[in-house]
Design a protein around this nucleic acid. Sequence first.
RNA 1: GUCCCCGUCGUCCAGCGGUUAGGACACCGCCCUUUCACGGCGGUAACACGGGUUCGAAUCCCGUCGGGGACGCCA
Length: 499
Amino acid sequence: MTAENPTPRPTRVRIAPSPTGDPHVGTAYIGLLNYLFATQRGGEFILRIEDTDRTRFHAGSEQMIFDALKWVGLTWTEGPEVGGPHGPYRQSERTEIYRKYAQILLDNGTAYKSFESEAELEEMRRQQTAAKQPPRYNGAHRHLTPEQISAYEAEGRPAVIRLKVPENTSTTFRDELRGDITFDHNNVDDQVLMKSDGFPTYHLANVVDDHLMGITDVIRAEEWISSTPKHVLLYKAFGWQAPNFWHMPLLRNIDKSKISKRKNPVSLNYYRESGYLPEALLNFLGLMGGGMAQPTEQEIVSKGLNTKEGDIFSLAEMIEKFDFKRISLGGPVFDLVKLRWLNGEYIRKQSPEAFYASLRRTILSDDYLQAVASLVHTRLETLGQFGDMTSFLFSDNVLPTDAVFLPKKRTLEETLAFVPEQITALESADWDLTSIESALKKLGEEKQWSVKENFMLLRAIITGSATSPPLVESLVVFGKARTLDRMRRFLEAQKKIRR
RNA sequence: GUCCCCGUCGUCCAGCGGUUAGGACACCGCCCUUUCACGGCGGUAACACGGGUUCGAAUCCCGUCGGGGACGCCA
């Protein structure tokens, strides 16, 4: 049952991000790891878009993912846009393929149709949870007769296709970092493989695609361990050789929970827009998990290294020295403080020309400066006032005093409780004038905050002042990632102050 | 609740049966300096706990505890 690897195949790995929002730092992390793995073995690193969830699909997301990965310096040889021999590389364009393979499973008895509605399933899980049972599909439609199936279909009831997990056995697979892991099938659910909308779930799609695309090694985050038995079962059901599995530790927040936007800037756009150098970010990501050997004492002496230089390395050095067998399994905390130090090291090492070029590429780009200029054009009397009016757009630390941000008729408590609501509203807004404005106004109406209170609070948080260029226009210029980050930092700062 | 993974300074890593348990970030002190930053020097700080195995355990085994993840017609 253990995945053996009798015939050596050329290494092929992939990352499979989902276009549901901003490009995620975890995507860059897993992307880096896959890239290193492939490059070290002379293999291929491919990019596949997992867009099978229509409800979470976000239009601009795919392009942002491409841009962000290129920004950090990763390149792939097959993918959407690039093409390749195993396309299409967008799962939404492969639905016929999944349908065909789902039918194979139906035919060979390793999957079955299931007709419960989502509401019924929800109720089932609710009862199980209430009874302190693990929530799990109860298998009611596992053994439907052909007649019953026809009857349901005649009724026009939508069906999903589920994996028929064999009873009274277990699945063992090898994790290349951890060794054998066994799951009793009592703890493996009859996972939905095809949704009623005709799209596959991740589980089916990733197995079919990985096989068809010749993926030899699946390097993904640890959160996938518990669904790996389902994938192994699928490979078996198809009679395919399973790839090797490498589960990487999860990046963590300061409190050790899985990294999340609530507690940590997680959008790669944030890092780009607030002036992190891509080499520094990549270097930092390479530090997470400890795949790089630290220099020995002799090396430090013979090469005249500063001790801290053991933490500083380029992509090329990672390709040369990164060792997957060295990866430590404890989830690393993504520590912004150390990232900032590292970034500072990179900035200090730049030539004056390179440093200036970096500024011109980001915080002082023509695009940015022009956008900022149009914000204050009619408001200043001398050009010298430009800085006075726009400094908040060029600062990283802006903190309003109570007197500035606290609305006259609101308590501190309700104000600090309202800010997270603003954050949530802005998170789901497209970043343009009308979307931002309507998101904020809608929230204000729901929560009985006047437009004035609502907007002045936000103005204070973002600009540090009660006077500023037009708020929403300023937010558009400042950018979504930085705006949200500033709001979260405001809350953090308040928490510290009040403690 | 069930299953799975993990457990060395606050954080990131080193250690892989015998070390005064090492480095980096952060923090503290001193030096450099018109200020700040950089830089230099020094310091505080960890093997979760309990049993084994062994002449000897941070290192191997078991248990406890702790942390995390998964349990979706999300990925």
